[in-house]
């Protein structure tokens, strides 16, 4: 089991999970989002082959109303 932090909240993932697996677990598959892992952008094309590691800090963002 991996312990990671997603958008500031602790979360567990299965061993060997990738960013794509996390996105699916969060029910965000196919949504307009962007992902950062430990301060670095993970491009959409790399979600499937970017493994998660214990202690990872993940940010998942979207566009919202703003001026």
């Amino acid at each position: 089991m991996l312990s990671i932090v997603v958008n500031g909240s602790a979360r567990n993932c299965g061993d060997g999970a990738t960013v794509a697996d996390l996105i699916r677990d969060l029910a965000l598959e196919g949504k307009r989002i962007a992902v950062e892992r430990n301060g670095e952008i993970v491009p959409r094309s790399r979600h499937g082959d970017t493994p998660l590691a214990s202690g990872d800090r993940i940010e998942v963002v979207r566009a919202v109303g703003g001026g």
């Binding site: 958008n7 969060l26 949504k31 989002i33 940010e59 998942v60 963002v61 566009a63 703003g66």
Partner: peptide, 14 residues
């Protein structure tokens, strides 16, 4: 048109 970038709400109303 401007937009802001914010964290997604995890686990709320997918």
């Amino acid at each position: 048109v401007t937009v802001a970038i914010r964290r997604t709400n995890i686990g709320q109303n997918p």
